[in-house]
Design a protein around this nucleic acid. Structure first.
Lengths: 214, 214
DNA sequence: GTGTGATCGTGAACACCGTACACATAAGCG
DNA sequence: CGCTTATGTGTACGGTGTTCACGATCACAC
């Protein structure tokens, strides 16, 4: 127990409890504010109240910390998409329901990108990436990846007879590309600065395009 | 006086001819190899054979150098797209021609992204961005921007009667988003590592989607 | 209890980066 | 020639990632 904290000023700690988590949280906060390049190891340790070298007990290097933050950001994106899906009114018609779900995935994606541009950008800055975003097993505890949510929704579309089976292969890449591209152009690409209502309008039209052209 | 260097090795230069250009070239080479974060001021000066502080006579800061490199990268992208357009067989049918041109813009974009991932990424890392990519006047000498090539092609589609006029507004954003998104996912996103033929196949299907869903 | 080894944070280094400043050199022009 | 101006040098400062020897603390055996 460390009840011996006599409230002075700078007692040496030496037992942080969970420094790894503290660094991850600090890094996530940095990423939220300035994207992947803002997650600076020294600043994270500073916020955790710890010497810079202490980070190396928990992360091999800056890149490892960034990867962890990236994984957390992906989880946050997945949660946002799931929330969008959960807020959907239940429809009987399976075709309409599947269509609505695909749209919800898209709008959830875009909404998250707009609300948390820093986290969104870090979510796609992993060094491994293909595995971490698209593979079944994700590091962060338990949930589905954004990519998996998309593929599941596309499968629903096929089962509901909306999307012909022969067009199913690679469909996730097409839908993902369109939505991801718009998100990128809006938050740090040439379309940055578009006012929100117009951006939303373009988003809806993009989802129309995907739905129709898939 | 440092004329007393007996011709050994390192005569001081003091007149470089065109240091600005040398730095820009060095920076472009760095960007080609490692994207925007690889254009390091000190390394550029090193390659130009000059002291680090010399760069500040020609660029306000690292960001300014990066912006210049970014502009050059955009020009390179535009040239690649124009080359793709120029390689097109001339068709009589204006509708088919317009469609082919739109496709060419897309494939040129994707091809460049695949061939020069570093330059491609730096092309979209300007600090101003909306202006530099989408506005009529570009810094680099004279040519059209990639964005302008796209809008021109879409206008052709409208004139040829392929694209209904009421769907024209924002169409450049939709097409651009789809293609840009795929490019991003392929080069440093989760789809990196897809083998080339499959990537090309997905690219074609994406362009189908755009053509149909626009 | 009391060692004893493993765990975890410290402190001082190193190399690298961007940037600022005073100074040296060269070129142009009266 | 001497003046001004443009351009490159040298040195320095603060910030960064990373390493390494060291020290504090815990956990467990005895």
């Amino acid at each position: 127990m460390r009840g011996s904290e006599t409230g002075a000023s700078k007692r040496v700690t030496y037992r942080h409890g969970d420094l790894r988590r503290a660094l991850l949280d600090a890094g996530t906060e940095l990423a939220r504010g300035g994207g992947p390049e803002a997650v600076v190891l020294r600043e994270a340790t500073r916020r955790a109240g710890v010497a810079p070298s202490a980070a190396y007990r928990h992360f091999a290097d800056r890149r490892a910390l960034l990867d962890a933050v990236c994984s957390a950001a992906q989880s946050a994106l997945a949660v946002a998409i799931e929330a969008e899906l959960a807020g959907l009114p239940c429809k009987e018609d399976p075709a309409g329901r599947a269509r609505a779900r695909l749209r919800a995935v898209g709008t959830g994606y875009l909404r998250f990108a707009g609300a948390e541009p820093g986290l969104f950008r870090t979510a796609f800055s992993a060094s491994d990436n293909l595995r971490s975003a698209a593979s079944p097993a994700r590091a962060g505890g338990g949930g589905l990846t954004p990519f998996q949510l998309l593929t599941a929704t596309l499968d629903e579309l096929v089962e509901a007879g909306v999307l012909p089976r022969e067009r199913r292969p690679n469909a996730e890449f097409l839908a993902w590309s369109a939505v991801h591209g718009l998100a990128m152009l809006l938050i740090d690409g040439p379309l940055r600065g578009l006012d929100k209502t117009q951006a939303q309008h373009v988003g809806q039209r993009l989802l129309d395009m995907v739905e129709q052209g898939l």
